[in-house]
Every structure is written in structure tokens, then in C-alpha cells.
């Protein structure tokens, strides 16, 4: 039973990170139809920002704030510089543009910073283990779960209680009509990117805290998983992205726990196969686009 609980926590913390990333992708996709391949680079940027802030001597909380701010600014700039020229183009055009942006950013990281991983000194208090009865809970995992929940709640409040949030939900329904209502398209799109940057930043923070280092390709794998999660949930559906993220986290943790040793190296292949098999039965994803933005 306690092993099961342990796995459950693992699944929640891993799935939570995927959920944050998938949500960031879905926020942007639901509004301008872009699948942002460079989302992972926002994670990486956050990692580097935290790393250099710590090296510079900032206390950890300030470094975190610096990291998240850099992620948001980077997302804002990304939209302004790279994606605005192709706004309104087909999904394919947007996809390829972001693919190229992602590749260019990676090479820049490799050349301007370092191709090797840089260690990040995470405070010892974060890497401890909390023992409750028979359970050994990693502090990081607990924090991941809590942070994920706070982020989801916060975003939900933002989308439902604020003017900007309502505008974004409206934009996800019908962007053209929103513009007719006199709202500025640019500011709605910019808000979406800043939010997706914040979500990527938080995910990046959690990722760095677990691994203790940053490298140029850090964001690649988790964002790949987030793409899959977003599709399973139903592209463009925010609640679907969250559901897909957690589902993928659960599948991975279960496979990790119960696959025979000889098959463990195949875990990622199995996980993706399982989720793609879901598409045989639900080609539109679990929560298709019609049930929009009900978090």
C-alpha cells in the first residue's frame, strides 16, 4: 500500500510538470493555433537564469523570481520577434517556424553559454526527504505537487475572474469576434505568451530543482512529452492538456514500476504507444475542443 502511495506521489509530481507544460502549449494553441516547439527553450532559459542569479550571489527566492521573470520576458519577445510575422498563417507554417526558432536557440545556448551541463546549487532544504510513517516523501516532489496545484488554481481564477482572463477565453472561442468587440489582438496574444512563459518557467524550475543542472537540451524531452499530453487531452483544450499531462505522468510511473527490468529501457516507447493507442478510440483527444477552457 505504501509503495502504491509512493508511486502515486511520483506520478502526481511528474504528471504535474507535464501538465504545466502542456497547459502552456494549449494556452497559446487555443488562441493562435501555434504548437510552440520553442516552449522547451523557455524552460532552458529559466534554468540558466536561476543558475546565473545564484552564481551572481542572489538568495534562492530572488533567483526563482528572476528565473520566472526571464521566462515571461523571453516568451513575450519570442512572440514579438519570431511569431508575429507569421500570425494568421496555417498551422503548418506556425509549427515549422517554431521548430526553426527552437533549433536556433539551442545552438545559441551551446555556443554562447556552454554545450555541457552547468550545475545549479539548489538549497539543501529542498532536496531533503520527509518521513511520514512508512512513507519517504521527497521534498521536491511535494513542492512540485503543491506548486502545480497553486498554478492551476491561479490560472483558473485568472481566466474566470479577470478582464484579461475572460478576453483570453473569448479569444480561444473565436478570435475574429473578439477583435470585433474592440479588444486588441496584440495584447491578448501577448498575454497568452506571457502566461505560457510563466508556466514553462515554473516547470523549468521544478525540473532544474530535481536534476540540479542545466544544459542546452534540457527542455527538449519534457516538452516532447507535453506535446503528446496536449494531443491526448485534445489540442487547444486547457482542461484536456492538464488531464493529458497527468495521464502521461501516471502511465510513465506505472510502466517504470511494473515493467520487467529487461524492458525498462523501452519505457518511453511504451508510454507513447499507449497514449497514441488512445487516439484510435478518441481521435479528437480525451476532452475535445468543444468543452473549452473549463478548468
Amino acid at each position: 500500500m505504501d509503495i502504491f502511495l509512493q508511486q502515486l506521489l511520483n506520478a502526481l509530481s511528474l504528471g504535474g510538470t507535464y501538465a504545466l507544460l502542456a497547459l502552456g502549449l494549449a494556452v497559446v494553441f487555443s488562441i493562435i493555433g501555434l504548437i510552440n516547439f520553442a516552449h522547451g527553450e523557455l524552460m532552458t532559459v529559466t534554468g540558466y537564469a536561476i543558475c546565473f542569479a545564484l552564481i551572481w550571489g542572489l538568495p534562492f527566492p530572488l533567483a526563482v523570481i528572476a528565473g520566472l521573470s526571464v521566462a515571461m520576458v523571453a516568451a513575450f519577445l519570442m512572440e514579438r520577434v519570431a511569431f508575429r510575422p507569421v500570425r494568421g498563417a496555417s498551422g503548418t507554417t506556425l509549427l515549422l517556424t517554431s521548430f526553426a526558432v527552437s533549433a536556433i536557440l539551442r545552438v545559441l545556448f551551446q555556443n554562447l553559454i556552454s554545450a555541457r551541463p552547468i550545475p545549479v546549487s539548489i538549497p539543501a532544504s529542498l532536496s531533503g526527504v520527509l518521513t511520514v510513517g512508512p512513507l519517504h516523501l521527497g521534498m521536491i516532489q511535494l513542492i512540485s505537487i503543491i506548486v502545480t496545484l497553486v498554478m492551476l488554481l491561479g490560472l483558473n481564477l485568472f481566466l474566470h475572474r479577470t478582464m484579461a482572463g475572460r478576453a483570453m477565453r473569448a479569444a480561444a472561442e473565436d478570435f475574429a469576434v473578439l477583435r470585433l468587440m474592440g479588444l486588441r489582438a496584440n495584447s491578448v496574444v501577448a498575454t497568452a505568451f506571457v502566461i505560457s512563459g510563466l508556466l514553462a518557467g515554473v516547470a523549468g524550475l521544478l525540473w532544474v530543482a530535481q536534476r540540479g543542472s542545466v544544459d542546452p537540451l534540457m527542455g527538449a524531452l519534457p516538452v516532447l512529452k507535453a506535446f503528446i499530453a496536449a494531443i491526448i487531452g485534445g489540442l487547444g483544450s486547457l482542461s484536456g492538456a492538464v488531464a493529458g499531462g497527468f495521464l502521461l505522468g501516471f502511465i510513465e510511473v506505472i510502466l517504470q514500476a511494473y515493467l520487467p527490468e529487461s524492458l525498462l529501457p523501452y519505457r518511453d516507447a511504451f508510454a507513447i504507444l499507449v497514449v497514441i493507442a488512445v487516439l484510435l478510440f478518441r481521435p479528437q483527444g480525451l476532452l475535445a475542443r468543444k468543452t473549452l477552457v473549463k478548468l
Binding site: A89, A100, I104, N111
Partner: peptide
């Protein structure tokens, strides 16, 4: 020496075509 110059070149070509 620039590491990954070809990737940058290829990336810029894709962007140029898309824009």
C-alpha cells in the same frame, strides 16, 4: 569555430521561407 553553424543556417532558411 562555431558549433552547429549548419543548424543555424538551416533554421534561418526555414524562417526565411516561412516569412
Amino acid at each position: 569555430e562555431v558549433f552547429g553553424l549548419t543548424d543555424i543556417g538551416v533554421g534561418l532558411v526555414i524562417l526565411a521561407v516561412m516569412y
